[in-house]
Design a protein around this nucleic acid. Structure first.
Length: 423
RNA sequence: GGAGAGGUGGCAGAGUGGUCGAAUGCGGCGGUCUCGAAAACCGUUAUCCUCGCAAGGGGAUCAUAGGUUCGAAUCCUAUCCUCUCCGCCA
């Protein structure tokens, strides 16, 4: 959420940001509602001030045994008026919040402005995309030959897009989770969290999935015969972990707070069926190790760079060549102000796969969630900045590992970093 | 799931219709004293909205949402949460 005051004072800048994100939204009506609200507020607050004074008078008169009928009947009328005003103000405020929640975060100045993905920029690469000197098998063939996972079994027990892992495939999943979390905890200084995979509506609103992305998530009902939408399966650990701090004030000395955690992730991604959805490239349930940071506003840009480095190191340890992509405004998520994707080349599928997305949300999520810290110099409560990044996203990383580390006999030779986990 | 108790400021905890945004204690901050520190003493110490260049003014907030009333932390209703006991259960 943006600061209403900021929108009021910088409507042009907000309009620019909306355009950059490709969001059509009627700012004018928001601003006029805001003006209307403040006008009403002024009137009703005068009435309330009078009522407060009258209440004191009544109390005093009663104590003195004086008559109060006249003033009470006068206040009856006044209270009715106040109630009318209040309900009007409430109605307008509701509308304002509804609109304000639909306004995306503003991209930072260094983010390329573009309509879609065409403005994305590769900012650096690491390693050379592997060229195999033999006919590479794709991950699906490898999986069925080695019995690592099955899409068919998943379709049977659940539905399309729910892979089932077997044997070394299942082991790889488990080992990778430990490997990544260990790296982030021991080397990068994150605290490990194990969080619920189901969250409530307020949490989804906090990180910004609601109201815009509600359709992409699996909604659950609170109880028998109740409507769906009180609870949701999480699309990413970002949601539970960031919301850990909702409505809390963090001591400045405790910043930055850095969490990492593994969770399964669930995404409906309606309408995504197509040629790019073969095998593990796009599934409805996958695993992910996530990193979440709460930081001071100053220097949050550097925190994003550090976060990306933390994610990159996982790929380096896994010896997977990758490229770092700075997303353009049109390809960024609703809540992000700046975002880097990490992409890995899959030599058989012949495609770059996004295996991590690292974002800076500035104070956008913190404002929605009311996460603050006390600034030691200004002595004021201020919103923190939040960040998160995948470190890394599964299914795709497994896809990339299989295709990159196959040998000409169709065997997989895992990178050194994983071998200790496999012994 | 059942029965009971309860949710008040950073924390502890008073307050059961009227100058209550809220006693008191602890903690925090500032000061006096001291070579310095501790102790003691004095002062101060919530957040949000809104008007204002500012000084400052006004409004709101005692889990949440409604209701009763001229007036609600206090009464009523619903919801959520916490604790104790019982049941069920991996």
């Amino acid at each position: 959420m943006l600061d209403l005051k900021f929108i009021r004072e910088n409507p042009d800048q907000v309009a620019k940001g909306l355009a950059a994100k490709g969001v059509a939204l009627d700012l004018e009506s928001l601003l006029s509602l805001d003006g209307e609200r403040r006008t009403l507020l002024k009137e009703v607050e005068i009435l309330k001030a009078k009522r407060n004074a009258a209440n004191d008078d009544i109390a005093r008169l009663k104590k003195q045994g004086q008559p109060t009928d006249a003033i009470i009947s006068e206040m009856k009328l006044s209270s009715q008026k106040i109630a009318d005003f209040d309900s009007k103000v409430g109605e307008i405020s509701g509308k304002i919040v509804e609109i304000a929640l639909l306004i995306p975060n503003m991209p930072l100045p260094e983010v390329p402005v573009c309509k879609g993905a065409e403005g994305n920029k590769v900012v650096r690469t690491w390693g050379e995309p592997r060229k195999l000197g033999f006919k590479a098998k794709d991950h699906l063939d490898l999986a069925s030959e080695l019995g690592l996972f099955s899409m068919e079994k998943g379709s049977k027990i659940t539905g399309a897009g729910f892979p089932v892992y077997f044997g070394e495939g299942a082991r790889l999943e488990r080992v990778l989770i430990s490997f990544m979390i260990d790296l982030h905890v021991k080397k990068h200084g994150y605290t490990e969290v194990w969080a619920p995979a189901i969250v409530n509506r307020a949490s989804m609103r906090g990180t910004g999935q609601i109201p815009k992305m509600e359709e992409d998530m699996y909604a659950l009902a609170a109880g028998e015969g109740e409507e769906k939408g009180s609870y949701f399966l999480i699309p990413t650990a970002e949601v539970p972990i960031t919301n850990l701090m909702r409505d809390e004030t963090i001591e400045e000395k405790d910043l930055p707070v850095k969490y990492t955690g593994y969770t399964p992730c669930f995404r409906k991604e309606a309408g995504s069926y197509g040629k790019d959805t073969r095998g593990l490239s796009r599934v409805h349930q996958f695993d992910k190790v996530e990193m979440v940071k709460f930081v001071k506003p100053e220097g949050s840009g550097q925190e994003l760079e550090a976060l990306v480095k933390d994610a990159e190191e996982v790929l380096q340890e896994l010896e997977l060549p990758y490229r770092v992509v700075l997303l353009g405004s049109g390809d960024m998520s609703f809540a992000a102000a700046k975002c880097y994707d990490l992409e890995v080349w899959a030599p058989a599928t012949q495609k770059w796969f996004e295996v991590s997305s690292c974002s800076l949300f500035t104070d956008f999520q913190a404002r929605r969630m009311n996460i603050r810290y006390r600034n030691a110099t200004t002595k004021k409560l201020e919103f923190v900045h939040t960040l998160n990044g995948s470190g890394l996203a599964f299914a795709r990383i497994v896809l990339c590992l299989l295709e990159n580390f196959q040998d000409s006999n169709g065997k997989i030779l895992f990178p050194k970093a994983l071998q200790t986990y496999f012994t």
